[in-house]
Computed example of a mutant assay.
Amino acid sequence: MSRDLDQLIACPRCDAVYHVEEPGMGERAVCARCHNVLIAPRKRAGKQIIAIALAIVVLVIAATIFPFLSIRAAGVSHGSSVLDAALAFSSSSLLVVLTLAVAALIVFIPVLRALLVIYVLTPVVFDRPPWPGAIRAFRLSEGLRPWSMAEIFAIGCAVALVKVADLADVHFGPAFWMFSALVVLMMLKDSYMCRYSVWKSLET
């Protein structure tokens, strides 16, 4: 019975179930119902994902230090960083939970997911046995994926700044461009990640 289940794969979007037929390198297995990509193995994808994850960690940490933007209006200017935005509600003890949630969504969770991916894929890339707890680490990384909102924060700020630009002079700091690069890197990481191949490597 377990062997029969090993030969099945379910689409995470529409729950359609298929018998596994692994495609070749560079090919894709796509759900016939919703066209979601189920299996997409790529050569050297593991090393590329690790490199991207390392870049994500560096960019997120650096973006919390450098200025995100500065606004000048009526002779008064004010600059803020991503960390300032996360701590904007910390002045009230009633909003401490909201402050921690904002900081987690835009800083801590993206860094944690990237570190978990590095932990899981490093032994796989070098043909070594998975490190202890790799399955739980990858499961946690996938579970946190909807809660990693660094790129949502950057897009939301960009939309808000378009409206503010008519009222004040807005200057983007280094952290803004770091978050812009972060959006692209996170999209690349998700596109390179073949979760079926990762699970298969961990289970074997």
Score class of each variant (00 low, 15 high):
residue 67 P to R: 02
residue 106 I to K: 05
residue 46 G to I: 15
residue 71 I to E: 00
residue 81 S to I: 04
residue 87 L to F: 06
residue 89 F to V: 00
residue 90 S to H: 00
residue 67 P to D: 01
residue 104 A to I: 09
residue 84 D to M: 04
residue 84 D to I: 01
residue 70 S to M: 00
residue 66 F to V: 14
residue 75 G to M: 06
residue 88 A to R: 12
residue 63 A to S: 15
residue 53 A to R: 08
residue 94 L to W: 10
residue 59 L to S: 10
residue 82 V to K: 05
residue 55 A to F: 01
residue 81 S to L: 03
residue 64 T to M: 13
residue 55 A to P: 00
residue 91 S to K: 01
residue 102 V to H: 01
residue 95 L to F: 13
residue 98 L to N: 01
residue 72 R to I: 03
residue 75 G to C: 04
residue 81 S to R: 03
residue 111 V to L: 09
residue 74 A to C: 01
residue 86 A to F: 04
residue 86 A to Q: 03
residue 59 L to N: 12
residue 61 I to R: 10
residue 94 L to K: 05
residue 83 L to R: 11
residue 85 A to V: 04
residue 58 V to I: 11
residue 107 V to W: 06
residue 80 S to D: 06
residue 85 A to N: 08
residue 53 A to P: 05
residue 76 V to E: 11
residue 61 I to W: 10
residue 73 A to E: 06
residue 54 L to K: 12
residue 60 V to T: 14
residue 82 V to H: 05
residue 52 I to W: 03
residue 49 I to A: 07
residue 80 S to P: 00
residue 57 V to D: 13
residue 56 I to S: 07
residue 61 I to N: 07
residue 108 F to A: 15
residue 61 I to V: 14
residue 52 I to S: 08
residue 51 A to L: 08
residue 78 H to W: 08
residue 91 S to P: 00
residue 89 F to L: 12
residue 93 S to H: 11
residue 76 V to D: 02
residue 47 K to H: 11
residue 111 V to Y: 11
residue 89 F to D: 01
residue 55 A to G: 04
residue 58 V to M: 05
residue 44 R to A: 15
residue 89 F to G: 00
residue 70 S to W: 01
residue 88 A to L: 07
residue 48 Q to S: 12
residue 98 L to S: 11
residue 88 A to S: 13
residue 93 S to K: 04
residue 58 V to A: 12
residue 110 P to K: 11
residue 65 I to M: 14
residue 107 V to F: 09
residue 108 F to S: 14
residue 106 I to V: 14
residue 108 F to Y: 14
residue 107 V to I: 15
residue 52 I to D: 08
residue 96 V to N: 06
residue 103 A to C: 11
residue 50 I to H: 11
residue 62 A to N: 03
residue 93 S to V: 04
residue 111 V to H: 08
residue 104 A to T: 12
residue 46 G to V: 15
residue 50 I to V: 15
residue 109 I to N: 02
residue 82 V to W: 03
residue 92 S to L: 13
residue 109 I to M: 09
residue 57 V to I: 15
residue 66 F to M: 12
residue 106 I to N: 05
residue 103 A to I: 06
residue 73 A to Y: 02
residue 76 V to L: 09
residue 65 I to R: 13
residue 101 A to C: 13
residue 106 I to R: 02
residue 47 K to W: 11
residue 52 I to K: 07
residue 109 I to H: 02
residue 72 R to S: 03
residue 74 A to L: 09
residue 47 K to T: 15
residue 79 G to P: 01
residue 89 F to I: 01
residue 108 F to E: 10
residue 103 A to G: 11
residue 66 F to G: 01
residue 110 P to M: 14
residue 93 S to Y: 03
residue 45 A to V: 12
residue 65 I to F: 15
residue 74 A to I: 02
residue 73 A to D: 00
residue 106 I to Y: 05
residue 96 V to M: 08
residue 89 F to S: 07
